[in-house]
Design a binder for these strands. Structure first.
Lengths: 302, 302
DNA sequence: CATTCTTACGTACTGCGTAAGAATG
DNA sequence: CATTCTTACGCAGTACGTAAGAATG
């Protein structure tokens, strides 16, 4: 008999391009996926995948079948949403965030999700922008919250907030309070983020556009390391103003004002649209509500 | 997670009005059905059935859920139909027939089904018209082939053929070859079928309409017994001409012509329309093709 | 030769059946 | 008190995971 498990296998194999990926997505093994497909093919006497080469290419019948599978799964998802009281919805959701979010409002977000969906298990993963995007593509996470790096993002994205960064350094390195032209920033030793970081990517392009040539650059893919290096006076770095407010007040760090200033970085929550989980959409909504880059877990104030 | 088994349970409980009936229909136990329902209710945190009294009354949410269940099951059925090569369709179909059909063309029908759907398991049951109708209502059979007793039948019905009956008796009882008025038939001892038999029901009404008062009646619910009793000269009976042709030729039996003659009895194949099995429809079609009340398993000729 | 799917075999777990229990009319 | 659903408990059969095999590029 036709089962949801078979449909899920078919669906995710096609979506992700391999048995292996589908297996990961469905938290099982290639073996199980392979057997679900064989079961389908045997039950219907139809070849779903082209077995000639070892690729997961659909046959014609397979394509039709895939459409039906999608339809059936979407329909089920809709019904589950429709019938579930939020309180009873049992599911896992995997959220990917970057360091800054993890350091500021991730706990707020998780609390908000738990409050609205008490039975949902939230798994969070902290990683670089680029890695998170790959993982979303591979569907090993459900929602990611990352800096917006392109005008049009490849997945359903919701703006959740923005971060104002400023050039900062240890007080003793500071050139005084006067505003300097952006280009002059290149005279300082710089501590920047790599291209795998969203903020790093955005600002690399920005500096390039502004014709700023970068030299003597220290790169870090860890925000904490970046802050630490800056604090220790190794150079000037762009850092989020809001969450470092206390350090700025104490003048452990000082701002180096430039003209033009650094543009804000917009953060978006992204999830696969085709992904049935409208829970992902709910998380995006909650993220927009919870977003607050001002708090700072490491330096929480009183 | 929402499963088809849960939906089937819900669907058939509502269709048939009790857990017990649903269990029978799904070839399982009340226990299993009960658990599937509880599973649903627990998973969704929703009461589907009103547990106050022990009846299978839907709650409001339950009604909505039922609609979704129906939709999902119908959709699955459609997909199964659409994707299955006939050769590969594995399923069971339960056919109910009356004695006359069993005695004449049932083997032809089964052979025809097997030829078109080699993997389908055919189960046939022989019973009285009324019993078969009850069983169709209880969904313990999928298709029944019975005499049409009403102008409008309660289920999807297809005309498959008709049977010409005639009054017959043993040669020594015969009043000669002359045609007698129908009313005079009442003068003979009669061997008739009970009201649970379709033919019996049809002819009872016919004789009543014609103003024939019946006396000295011997009733049988077994066609074979009826033929046997007639052969042994106990009375006059209405019997199918075509399948008794050889006995008439040998004059073991003779026809007692009446005016008006007995009307033909129309046979229909019926199945539940809402029942997803369009296999049932295919059986009805094959029945119309295979139908042949002329053969006679007990007296096959050469 | 690395990748990707298939096959074989032993196991774990879901879901089932039996049978007894509780509630209803 | 008969009917109908629920609960408890032990079992069976499905579906899974591991690991080795085959095919492909």
């Amino acid at each position: 008999m036709l089962t949801f498990k078979q449909m899920e296998a078919l669906y995710w194999i096609v979506q992700l391009g391999s048995f292996e990926a589908a297996a990961t997505r469905l938290s099982t093994t290639q073996s199980a996926i392979s057997k679900r497909v064989q079961e389908l093919e045997r039950a219907f006497g139809v070849a779903v995948f082209d077995r000639a080469n070892r690729s997961a290419r659909l046959t014609e019948k397979g394509t039709e079948f895939f459409e039906y599978a999608r339809e059936l799964l979407e329909r089920r998802e809709y019904i589950v949403e429709r019938m579930s009281s939020k309180e009873a919805l049992v599911r896992q959701i995997r959220i990917g965030v970057t360091e800054l979010t993890a350091l500021t409002w991730l706990p707020r977000l998780i609390a908000a999700i738990q409050a609205e969906y008490p039975k949902v298990k939230v798994q969070a993963e902290v990683d670089l922008n680029a890695t998170l995007r790959e993982r979303l593509a591979a569907a090993t996470v459900d929602v990611i919250i990352v800096p917006q790096t392109h005008e049009v993002e490849p997945y359903t994205s919701t703006l959740v907030g923005q971060v104002q960064n400023a050039w900062m350094c240890a007080a003793r390195l500071a050139p005084g309070k006067r505003v300097i032209p952006l280009a002059e920033i290149a005279k300082f030793p710089l501590i920047l983020q790599g291209g795998l970081s969203g903020t790093g990517y955005v600002y690399s392009r920005f500096l390039e556009e502004q014709g700023v040539a970068l030299q003597r650059v220290l790169a870090s893919n860890s925000l904490i390391a970046q802050i630490g290096l800056t604090l220790s006076g190794l150079g000037v770095s762009y850092l989020p103003e809001a969450c470092l407010a206390r350090m700025l007040k104490r003048r452990t760090l000082v701002v180096v004002p430039t003209v033009p200033a650094l543009p804000p970085v917009r953060y978006v929550a992204m999830h696969r649209a085709e992904q049935s989980h409208s829970l992902s959409a709910a998380v995006a909504r909650l993220a927009a509500q919870s977003c607050d880059f001002c708090s700072n877990l490491l330096d929480p104030g009183s």
